[in-house]
Design a protein around this nucleic acid. Structure first.
Length: 491
RNA sequence: GGCGCUAUCGUCUAGGGGUUAGGACGUGAGAUUCUCAAUCUUAAAACCCGGGUUCGAUUCCCGGUAGCGCUACCA
């Protein structure tokens, strides 16, 4: 146990304590990010604690997927502990609290107590019979092997007020009489969340507990546990919750994969964009800036900037991603150096069955960077760069707005002649093709569209000259020839 | 039911006793352009309701309402 007198820590110690009951939830990810920001902004220490005491629900695959999510975010931590390995510590702490008379054994069968709770009108606070059981009888029944839960003996009748100053919500207070005698140990001897969490926070000398607002009222219980432990009380800061558009708290069960960070990753969010988006949910730098790098956020981050109202993640059935998250991602994509963008793009191409060389990706990336919002969009935006044979398209698309098949054919014939002899660089192509247009008495639009469709297989594509340079002369000429044939078949 | 927290455009938010209530996303219109995108300009869009306090409240206080959270031998 830490020395209660040595609490005046210089640098903060924070922790992120996920319980491995599934994938990494966006709400958990945000809590992690805020803790990280607080730690790094204040040159403190970040502890990752796996709250894996719920053996019923915890799985190894869940542990893996949480680490996977955290690794993707790219934020580091300094220490790592597993709660399940500290069982002895938790039980000793429970014994110590019991020894001080601050807890009592409750022999009420678990189900029976449930019934009593639900039948009561107000909040269930305590069971007088058990709370007042004599030391002797309690000991006798325990020795006889009768199972019991250990409950905190919350101070009653003294008008005691529990208080703390929350880093986000300010002064908080509650009458101890309104706090129920919560369990410390279950009847199977396992510690409850409240006990394990506080014991570990105390033992790990956590100075700032930054967590979801769903724990705001639990904090009064935690105050009591720290007191029972004789440990210094950490600072608390609660974060507003993330809500779904339907008004409910974002949950795996109700809202499905949209609450998993892997969904964002797989769709092609950049981690820094995802972090940027999550930070803006409940926090503001208060300077009208929204597109921020991780370094900027870290430098700007303070608890003062955290607001108190829950935030809605605005997804729909049609679109699982908040429009602002998508926009931010597009911004971050554009801000990325080409080589980094290429590195991020390659896995998406690979997964789509394309295996372009790194050089090719590097050449393509600048042409599509302003045309994609998610990395996965790159596949459909750039497929024609990688295909040996263009997918079939409607030859009618080759015909410009005000024109006919004959015109389109003339354009493509001329283009072939020009491209056969023009150096394949942007400026030469630009000059030669514009001159060709003039010679045909055409404006740029009607001239370029047939070529673009011929070369890309669609009307909307990156700028024509850059595209042709990447594709190369042979491919361009070949595709234009094929387009001409298609046009002929059209009649 | 009890206790707690919260309330500014559709969404994320800034602001704060006197403001044309600011920004962003999204949406509409226009400009630019070889298409698309990007970019630029522009428009529509908000202080939950009722009482106080005050010369003046969206802002402070109280009440209501609504939403959320906690009220487990879940975390």
């Amino acid at each position: 146990m830490p020395d209660p007198n040595s609490s005046g820590a210089a640098t903060p110690r924070v922790r992120f304590a996920p319980s491995p009951t599934g994938f990494l939830h966006v709400g958990s990810a945000r809590t992690f990010i805020f803790n990280w920001l607080y730690a790094r902004h204040n040159h403190g220490t970040m502890v990752l604690r796996l709250d894996d005491t719920d053996i019923e629900r915890n799985t190894e695959t869940s542990v893996q997927s949480i680490f996977e999510g955290l690794r993707w975010l790219g934020l580091d931590w300094d220490e790592e502990v597993k709660q399940s390995e500290r069982l002895d510590l938790h039980r000793q702490a429970a014994a110590a609290i019991f020894a001080k008379g601050l807890a009592y054994r409750d022999f009420t069968p678990a189900h029976a107590s449930d019934d009593e709770h639900s039948s009561s009108q107000g909040a269930w606070l305590f069971n007088p019979g058990m709370r007042e059981l004599s030391r002797e009888e309690s000991g006798r029944r325990a020795d006889a092997g009768e199972p019991f839960a250990l409950r905190y003996r919350v101070p009653r009748g003294g008008g005691r007020i529990l208080r703390f100053v929350d880093g986000v919500y300010g002064e908080q207070q509650k009458l101890a009489d309104e706090v129920e005698d919560f369990a410390l140990l279950r009847s199977d001897g396992m510690p409850t969340y409240h006990l394990a969490s506080c014991v570990d926070d105390a033992d790990l000398r956590i100075s700032h507990i930054i967590r979801g607002q769903d724990h705001l009222t639990n904090t009064f219980k935690h105050l009591l546990i720290f007191e029972g432990l004789g440990a210094p009380t950490p600072q608390f800061a609660h974060l507003p919750l993330l809500m779904a558009p339907d008004g409910a708290k974002l949950s795996k069960r109700k809202h499905g994969p949209v609450v998993s960070v892997t969904t964002y990753r797989d769709a092609g969010f950049l981690p820094q964009a995802f972090i940027n988006f999550l930070c803006l949910l409940g926090w503001s730098p208060k300077n009208d800036r929204e597109f921020l790098s991780l370094d900027e956020i870290r430098d700007l981050f303070t608890l003062d900037g955290v607001n108190r109202a829950n935030a809605v993640v605005n997804f729909t059935n049609d679109d699982p991603f908040d429009a602002k998250a998508v926009w931010l991602n597009a911004e971050h994509i554009r801000a990325l150096p080409v080589d980094e963008l290429s590195d991020n793009l390659r896995p998406f191409f690979e997964q789509a069955g394309f295996h372009p060389s790194p050089e090719k990706v590097l050449a393509v990336a600048p042409l599509i960077r302003e045309r994609i919002k998610l990395l996965r969009d790159a596949v459909s935006a750039a497929d024609f760069f990688f295909l040996d044979q263009l997918a079939p398209y409607d030859a009618a698309e080759l015909i410009p707005q005000k024109g006919d098949a004959a015109l389109a054919r003339r354009v493509l014939e001329t283009a072939q002649q020009v491209l056969a002899v023009t150096p394949f660089d942007h400026d030469s192509l630009d000059k030669a093709l514009r001159e060709a247009a003039a010679s045909l008495g055409l404006k740029a639009g009607p001239m370029f569209q047939p070529i673009r469709v011929a070369v890309c297989g669609r009307k909307n594509a990156p700028p024509l000259f850059e595209t042709m340079v990447v594709l190369g002369r042979d491919v361009c000429l070949d595709r234009i020839r094929q387009a001409e044939e298609g046009l002929r078949s059209l009649g």
